[in-house]
Each structure stands twice: as C-alpha cells, then as structure tokens.
Amino acid sequence: MSRIVTQLSEISAQYDALFVDLWGCVHNGVNALPEAVSALQNYRAQGGKVVLVTNSPRPRAGVEKQLITFGVPDNSWDTIATSGDSARSAMYRGIVGEKVWHIGYPGEEKFFEPIGVVEDPVDIRMVPLEEAEGIVCTGPRDPLADPSVMRPEFLMAKQSGLKLLCANPDIVVDRGEQREWCAGALAQLYAEMGGESLYFGKPHPPIYDLARRRLSALGTDIPDSRILAIGDGVLTDIAGAMGEDIDSLFISGGLAAAETRTETQPDPDALTAYLQKEMSNPTYTIGYLR
C-alpha cells in the first residue's frame, strides 16, 4: 500500500538524490508549478541533488532552454537526463541504420544534430519512408490526431522490416488543459501491428543509466537505496523506478488526477483502486509536488 504524504520534506531526509519527472510534476507544459519549484529548492538547500529525468526527445540543452521559458529557475535542479539524449546516442551508434525516416513535430530536426559522445558515429541521413533503413520517432506530426492515422505508413514500414526508435515513450501528456499524444503512442501502435519498437526513456533502463552517470558527474557516489524517483506516470515513472528497485513518489494530481480524485490530495479509496488496476506500487503518493 502506497503511503500518502503531504510534503516532500516528510520523507526527503531519507534520500541524497531525486530523479524528478518534469511534465506534470515541475511544469504543466506551459508554466512552472511554484510549489514544486519551492520543494526542489528547499531540498537542494539541505544538500540533496536533483536530477531532472524526462522523456523529452529534446537534447539536454534544449530542455534547459524550455525550462527558462516555463519559468523553472536553474537553482531548483542540478543536472538533466533526457530520453532524447539516450536515444540520440543509440541512433548515432547505428541502431536503426544510416538512412532514417523521421516522424515528429516541425522543428525537432535538432534531434539529428551531431553529438560528441559517440565514437565513430554513423552518418545519419533523413530520407523518405520508401528509402529508409529505419524509423526515428520524436513525436506525432499532429499531437491532437489519433495515432491510428499512421497505420498505412506503418504497414509499409513493417513489411520492410524497419525498426522504430522511440525518443519519448510517454503515451500522452497534458499541456495546460489539453491532452496530447506523444511518440510512445505511435511506438505502441507500431508494435501492436507487428513492428519492432526500441525505447530509450522511462520506464526502460537506458535513461536510468544516463541519469546515474549524470548524477555521478556531479562528484557524488549515491547508491540506489538513497535515490527517490518522482513522477506522475505509473506506466513510465513508477514502473521504471520499480524496475530499477528505486523508491518512488507518485504525483496523483498529474495524468491520473481524475482516476484518483485528486484535488489537493488523492482520495485514498480511489488511489488504491487505481493502483490495483494498473498493478503499480509506488512507495509514496502525494497530490502535487510541494
């Protein structure tokens, strides 16, 4: 049974580092969440380290710029690990070939900018589907369109035996009051159609390996038993933490606000029913990060 807490400070002394999700926890896709920012600032003031672990397909530098526009101050975190960075490293190692068909929002071409962390990177070229050796999906072209619009192209890709690299395993996010589809929804559809999808964000191990490396680069050697993962996605943040044997704090007022009847705090019965349905067992739960 997940223990419901009212403040991060109730439990934070047990942990030397936090792996914190961004969307739905620290910002809502439009603006920073002030109570969450204050909680992280207070945690850092006590000596704790904050690693922002996000399924954003953007490189770390791109997420830093985005945080500025949302009003998230840089004194509320120490370092960032993105799904995009993890996926880009794999792409430049040639995991889906050199000629790739890109699916994504306009402007996400920065995903294909060269990186200096892969030795002897392959020469990635974006090509039409009929010429591709693999697929790179950073997100849907239209985040409001049902993922099924991709079925005809995915059928052709599957018949050609193309692997799909998914740079963001999230299924949906809430941008303010608007729910949008993410790359994970397309990767899920492709897999359901019989294609092969490769994932590099939460809940899959590569992004946690990256987060640990980023934490270690801060000059601290922190065991998993002293790390707390925080997030609003039971299928990503909490499932990933459980898979890594890391304690977790579930933010019930994010993606599952309706199911958990969260206003300021979750309804205990609704929370229990939701977690049982999703077969999830976060160590702690709170309505909103504060």
Rank of each mutant, 00 (worst) to 15 (best):
S225Q: 12
D74L: 12
L155K: 12
I227E: 11
S2G: 03
D174W: 04
K202C: 07
A167N: 02
A258R: 14
P268W: 08
A87N: 04
G219F: 08
D209A: 12
Q66S: 12
I251V: 15
P266E: 05
V37K: 12
L235Q: 13
V5P: 02
F250H: 11
T236L: 04
E108R: 09
G161M: 04
I222M: 07
A81Q: 00
L235H: 15
E119M: 02
E177C: 04
K65N: 12
T6H: 15
N168K: 01
V117T: 15
V51T: 04
G62V: 08
T283I: 07
V5E: 06
T138D: 09
Q66H: 12
G29D: 05
D209K: 11
V127M: 08
W101C: 05
A273R: 14
V122I: 15
L198M: 14
K99T: 03
P205L: 09
S9E: 15
T69E: 14
P73I: 08
P203A: 04
L18I: 13
I95S: 09
Y274G: 08
V51D: 06
A45N: 15
R58H: 04
S160Y: 00
T69I: 03
P143Y: 10
N168I: 02
Q66T: 13
F70T: 10
S216L: 13
S248Y: 08
P57E: 03
L162M: 09
V50E: 11
I135Y: 04
G107Q: 11
L186G: 02
T272K: 13
P152G: 08
C137P: 06
D120L: 05
N75Y: 13
M279E: 14
I95A: 01
Q178N: 07
P205Q: 11
G194I: 09
R125S: 14
D78F: 11
P34V: 12
E192Q: 15
I80G: 04
P205C: 02
L189I: 05
E131F: 02
E192P: 00
G254N: 07
P206L: 06
Y288A: 13
Y105F: 13
P205S: 09
D170E: 02
A145W: 01
Q41G: 07
K202Y: 03
L40G: 07
G201I: 00
G233M: 06
V172H: 11
V63L: 06
A36P: 04
V173N: 03
L210F: 05
F250A: 10
G104S: 05
I286M: 13
L155R: 14
E130Q: 10
E131W: 00
D21F: 04
A36C: 05
E278N: 09
L22D: 06
V136K: 09
E133Q: 15
